[in-house]
Computed example of a mutant assay.
Amino acid sequence: MRICFLNPFGTPAYDQLIYDVLTPSLQSGTEVEVRHLDIVPENMDYFAAKHLVEVGIMKAAVQAEKDGFDAFVIGCCYDPGLTQCRELVNIPVVGPLEASIMNTRPFGHRYAVVTDHHKAATEIADRVRIYGQEQNCKAVSHVGWFIYDMIKDPAVVAKDAYDTSLRIMKETGAETVVIACTIVSACYEITAAKDESLRGISVIDPNIIAVKQAEMLASLNAVGQYRIARTGYYQQLATHSPEQAEELYALLTEK
């Protein structure tokens, strides 16, 4: 099984961090390749930038399918381009936020979300509502970090993620926390593996949950059981206009 994990950032700065977090959790026979975009803007902390980056994500999904990957993970908890990519390709596409909040119940009845900064918190709250998960989500908070600063001091980011998670759990009664930034969560996992003082609370890592869901869906696809509906929300353009679909595909595969 081959899974493409896309860091949807225009830099390789976070690739090794994500790879190191993912590999211990892979099942035997699963290979993960971490890719990043060659694109400007480098990050998508703001909505206009995110909109531009989503074009690169769609191109990366199409390329991953062409390259023979069995599943594609969009490595950002905005889940940017998730619906578009599912419409475009036939391999399973996973968004870390969707995968995480859909799987909170085995970890705890009520949950909170901790993301990276104030701008992200509003977007994540909107996505929780869109996914129909508001009922058991007690709060959406943030650690106050922007992505380009995190890589400079992962241990401090991890401590802030732990402290914020602990505080939100005490304030709201949430039993588990989704650390809903792939890089914040990666910083936490790498640091907590060496520092026992950061363990002891229930947290959900969206990187690992996304890849485990990708493994499951790829396995289902291999035996003909990934039956994505193509009659409504994920209907493909080719069923409506093959000519327009061909034009779109050409745009997404041009160099």
Rank of each mutant, 00 (worst) to 15 (best):
86 R>D: 08
53 V>K: 04
118 H>P: 11
222 A>I: 06
54 E>Q: 07
159 K>A: 14
76 C>V: 11
202 S>M: 09
131 Y>G: 05
102 M>F: 10
143 V>Y: 02
85 C>W: 08
251 L>M: 07
137 C>H: 05
48 A>S: 14
139 A>F: 03
71 A>N: 03
82 L>C: 13
66 K>I: 12
174 A>Y: 01
78 Y>N: 09
86 R>K: 11
32 V>Y: 01
103 N>R: 04
76 C>Q: 02
68 G>N: 10
2 R>Q: 09
201 I>M: 09
71 A>I: 11
50 K>L: 14
121 A>R: 10
131 Y>D: 14
189 E>V: 11
118 H>T: 10
158 A>M: 15
231 T>G: 15
71 A>C: 09
174 A>N: 06
5 F>S: 03
206 P>I: 03
19 Y>C: 11
72 F>W: 02
26 L>E: 05
118 H>W: 10
39 I>S: 03
113 V>I: 10
45 D>S: 12
62 V>W: 02
75 G>L: 02
68 G>K: 03
141 S>Y: 08
204 I>V: 13
248 L>T: 00
132 G>C: 13
122 T>P: 15
69 F>V: 02
13 A>S: 12
184 V>F: 12
74 I>N: 04
85 C>F: 07
23 T>P: 13
37 L>Q: 06
217 L>H: 00
241 S>G: 05
117 H>P: 05
163 D>N: 11
72 F>D: 00
73 V>K: 00
185 S>V: 08
213 Q>W: 12
114 V>Q: 01
131 Y>L: 14
79 D>M: 08
248 L>P: 02
116 D>S: 12
188 Y>R: 01
248 L>C: 07
48 A>N: 07
226 Y>P: 03
199 R>D: 04
194 K>Y: 05
56 G>Q: 04
217 L>K: 02
235 Q>R: 06
80 P>N: 01
238 A>V: 15
121 A>Q: 14
81 G>I: 08
103 N>C: 14
59 K>M: 15
5 F>H: 01
190 I>V: 12
167 R>K: 05
252 L>Y: 15
117 H>M: 10
224 G>D: 13
42 E>A: 11
222 A>N: 13
199 R>P: 11
91 I>R: 00
188 Y>M: 10
189 E>K: 03
49 A>D: 11
224 G>R: 03
58 M>T: 06
155 A>L: 08
144 G>W: 04
74 I>Y: 04
98 E>L: 08
22 L>S: 00
52 L>K: 04
240 H>I: 13
171 E>V: 03
159 K>P: 14
135 Q>T: 09
155 A>I: 14
112 A>Y: 02
105 R>G: 15
48 A>F: 13
165 S>R: 00
42 E>L: 05
227 R>C: 15
161 A>R: 02
154 P>G: 00
171 E>N: 12
105 R>Q: 14
115 T>A: 07
253 T>S: 07
131 Y>T: 04
126 D>A: 08
82 L>K: 00
89 V>S: 00
213 Q>F: 06
227 R>W: 01
152 K>M: 14
240 H>D: 09
95 G>F: 01
148 Y>I: 13
137 C>P: 14
160 D>H: 08
203 V>R: 01
20 D>E: 15
134 E>M: 02
183 I>T: 05
64 A>D: 10
189 E>P: 02
159 K>H: 14
221 N>S: 12
